[in-house]
């Protein structure tokens, strides 16, 4: 069994998610090699063979060229699996590689399963066990599902030359919006999710946050709907937080949200749905209508 791990590099930096690929490879067993479109100055702590192309020359987002480099490496290494992180880089690139290899793709793996892979579905409420039906397979692993593992050592570098352009022109990065609220320093965060129903109900959650001496957070749907400003968003595309107390109000617990708050010291979830995935990470799940429970808790704390 051999896995080709596709490392991640962005804005001139090797991303730590690269080491989650190593964690996955360790569970998988067998050999591995890594490919990185990165830089000589930032080699991963990885003692195996590293196929390295220069990001300054081929671009950090140039899927046509990255695909070509991966296919070239697959031809040399003949791996059973080509493994990406399920990220904006991985989910964009993996299907291109799978199509070119005529290989199965299994997306967003959360665990190894007997003879296959466990993936989430139905908004993380359910799981499927999926088996590739082709000899090679392209895999993406869920960010945060496998341990960050630094194998150590110095890679044996095989340099890849990249040539040609691509069909996409990368213009540049836009930095994250200035954070009006730095949730990463908050000791208590009370977050509003879709379960609060409408924008007019957000003050109920804000009042609870204040009563607990904390800040207001929000899940993505609430921010997309314009109920709460993006500066309050917790999750993969917002802020990653680890307060002493996190209270999730009417948040079902999409992966992207869980990844941003599951390291909190103590998590309380208030949700009508006993089966909501937020229950997976909650220390206490209060099964209740948040619009009844939150004001009652606020009133009690005011006493």
């Amino acid at each position: 069994m051999k896995a080709l791990l596709i490392g991640e590099y962005r804005e001139g930096k090797l991303l730590d998610t690269t080491y989650e690929l190593c964690g996955f490879a360790a569970q998988l067993g067998g050999e591995s090699a890594m490919l990185l479109v990165g830089s000589e100055g930032q080699l991963p702590d990885y003692g195996g063979t590293l196929y390295l192309a220069d990001a300054a020359a081929c671009g950090e987002y140039n899927p046509d060229l990255h695909k070509k480099l991966i296919l070239e490496t697959v031809a040399r290494e003949n791996p059973d699996y080509v493994v990406f992180v399920h990220s904006s880089y991985g989910w964009d690139l993996a299907p291109r590689v799978a199509a070119a290899l005529k290989a199965a793709q299994v997306s967003e793996i959360v665990a190894l399963a007997d003879g296959g892979f466990e993936v989430g579905c139905c908004n993380a409420k359910m799981r499927r066990t999926v088996k590739p039906a082709t000899s090679k397979a392209v895999l993406t692993i869920q960010a945060g599902a496998f341990p960050v593992t630094r194998p150590g050592g110095t890679p044996r570098v095989e340099r890849l030359a990249a040539e040609g352009s691509g069909t996409l022109e990368f213009v540049g990065y836009e930095p994250a919006e200035a954070k009006g609220v730095d949730l990463t320093r908050a000791e208590v965060i009370v977050s509003a999710g879709r379960g609060v129903g409408k924008k007019e109900n957000v003050p109920v959650i804000a009042a609870l946050a204040k009563a607990l001496g904390g800040e207001l957070g929000a899940s993505r749907p609430v921010v997309d709907a314009g109920w709460v400003d993006h500066s309050h968003q917790v999750g993969t595309t917002g802020q990653t937080v680890s307060p002493k107390l996190y209270v999730a109000c009417g948040i079902s617990g999409a992966i992207q949200h869980l990844a941003g708050m599951k390291k909190s010291d103590f998590i309380v979830a208030i949700n009508k749905d006993k089966d909501a995935p937020i229950g997976e990470v909650a220390d206490v799940l209060v099964v209740a209508d948040v619009l009844q429970f939150a004001p009652a808790l606020t009133a009690r704390l005011a006493k």
């Binding site: 359910m126 799981r127 999926v130 590739p132 799940l285």
Partner: peptide, 19 residues
């Protein structure tokens, strides 16, 4: 190119209190 072997709820990790 892939086959689904099963569809099931996630294994409960437990530990959390349900009120």
């Amino acid at each position: 190119r892939t086959a689904t072997a099963s569809f099931h709820p996630p294994a409960k990790k437990g530990g959390g209190i349900v009120l």
